[in-house]
Design a protein around this nucleic acid. Structure first.
Lengths: 296, 296
DNA sequence: ATGACCTGATCGAAATTTGTCATGTGCCGA
DNA sequence: TCGGCACATGACAAATTTCGATCAGGTCAT
């Protein structure tokens, strides 16, 4: 009965495909989706059989997807977007209100952007005001009640029970391949800002240990730090996504940095039904995909 | 395991939903889809259960769909459109060429329009030139090789083996509720045009029988005929889709008109790979939905 | 080279989903 | 009130999907 003619795509299969790309591999995707590895492998296999064409290239070194696969992914993304929006629209209860939301630079180009865009479309009566600041600043604004909620970075061990975990990421000391960390004397440190909590951690640790860090560069955007590292100005604390092939991770001489977590943290303010909905949509997305992905 | 939370739509279910609307009922949809009535009923039921909301209203008199159902249909249409396009794009082989296509007025606002639009998108290298004419004119153009193919109306008994049947439709004599068909003397006839084959049939039949038709109104567009009928100018031959509640179907005194068929008819010209592809896509659509639907 | 190790493919068995047949129910027109 | 029609429902069979276990192929550090 599985005629070649009877070709159809299933939402599930497309979602799997999408997860495979975004998590980079079948095994990882299966974990995120809460399925066994073989189930995911089978699903893709079936998809390939029913379409009578290869989707994953299985060639080491090459891109994981074939041209047809990339093509299909493109459609998958659009179809899934519509699908999820359709689901949400069914449960929508005309909400109105105002949300003041904080974001970090890093989260502006993740799935969050997609979710926010969809939220606006589904709930035009809600005005969403967004501010992009550094995590420490956002936390302070939350405390002062200037924001209803914010997506901030915190150290993994600082996640509160009320936080909603979006994803984790590793933090690394990095340097240029040519740059040599001085055995003695101060280590040149490239820092985001006064308000960067990486830096706070680094300086604290340095004091405890027998390490001297000298902040030789400050820039509040990641692009600047990346450039400074590549130029060999010193060492910096960067999260995984900013690593470049020409950067080297420093493991000796410097203390191991803690893991990072991206969380949605709400202010302690009174009820905000619009925010409740937005947060619910985010949680929904997380449970569906087993966390959000960094790459948009 | 079938949690309420695990909400997802399946392409199949959406397609069923769509068929239910376009064929006007579960039983009809099941025939078109080649499934049993209970299968369709079950599918919709499952969809409702998994979404935890009603989709069909089941109230006699009211619209078949609930508000949520209408909402969902809207998304279904978009999702299915993307889905089908994705499938086609996987098999596409960059084709180029030129197609000269004829359409009747009636087919411009059916699924054909959607298919043509998609075809243009998928094959930008193919130039599609479309002419809208009356069926008889199109047939003549086909004969003369001025068109590569045309979607024309023919009487059901005139369908050729090489034609691709899109859908059938009934033809009726209609009049205004107030208008009385004269027992004797000529019957005032509202005709499309000289080139209208309804009219040719009517006049032929009239000659054979003992009936006199007098063409009192001519207009090449359906809207004009409809208006003339409503104004009580006479009787006309109209296909089902143009019937209006205030029109009366005349069954006595006039001969029963034959059924109509809409077909794709190709010219006898040489190979045209672009046209082959377009025709294949149309056939594909037909087999998937069990014929095309009239309403866009 | 070798062995630990990771990723994905494959197989049989179990669980779940989906479709069919047979039958029940409610509504409408004669 | 009786068929007839359109849909709902239940039981069951068929198909699909998933899982656990195992296997094959590759990478990497020694």
């Amino acid at each position: 009965m599985s005629e070649l003619n009877n070709r159809r795509l299933e939402i599930d299969a497309l979602r799997v495909l999408w997860a495979v790309r975004n998590h980079g591999g079948i095994t990882r995707a299966s974990e995120a989706l809460g399925l066994s590895q073989s189930a995911v492998s089978h699903k893709i296999k079936r998809l390939e059989t029913s379409l009578d064409c290869d989707i994953l290239s299985r060639k080491p070194g090459a891109s994981m997807f074939t041209a047809a696969g990339e093509d299909l992914l493109d459609y998958a993304e659009r179809i899934l977007g519509l699908h999820d929006e359709a689901l949400l629209s069914l449960t929508k209860t005309a909400i109105a209100g105002r949300i003041s939301l904080g974001l970090t630079e890093d989260t502006t180009c993740t799935d969050l952007a997609r979710i926010l865009g969809r939220f606006r479309r589904l709930h035009p009566q809600v005005s969403v005001r967004t501010k992009v600041r550094m995590s420490l600043v956002l936390r302070a604004m939350l405390e002062r009640g200037e924001l209803d909620a914010a997506i901030v970075q915190v150290f993994a061990h600082e996640v509160r029970p009320t936080d909603i975990l979006l994803f984790r990421e590793k933090l690394h000391w990095v340097r240029n391949g040519d740059f040599v960390v001085p055995q003695e004397g101060p280590v040149p440190f490239l820092s985001f800002d006064d308000a960067c909590f990486y830096r706070t951690w680094a300086l604290d640790i340095a004091q405890d240990g027998d390490l001297l860090l000298e902040t030789v560069f400050e820039c509040s955007s990641a692009a600047g730090i990346v450039a400074a590292v590549i130029s060999g100005l010193g060492v910096a604390l960067l999260n995984e996504r900013h690593l470049r092939p020409d950067m080297v991770i420093v493991t000796r001489q410097l203390p191991v940095p803690p893991d990072l977590a991206y969380v949605v943290r709400r202010s302690r303010k009174v009820r905000n039904p619009a925010l409740d909905t937005l947060v619910a949509e985010i949680e929904n997305e997380i449970s569906r995909y087993g966390g959000l992905t960094l790459a948009s």
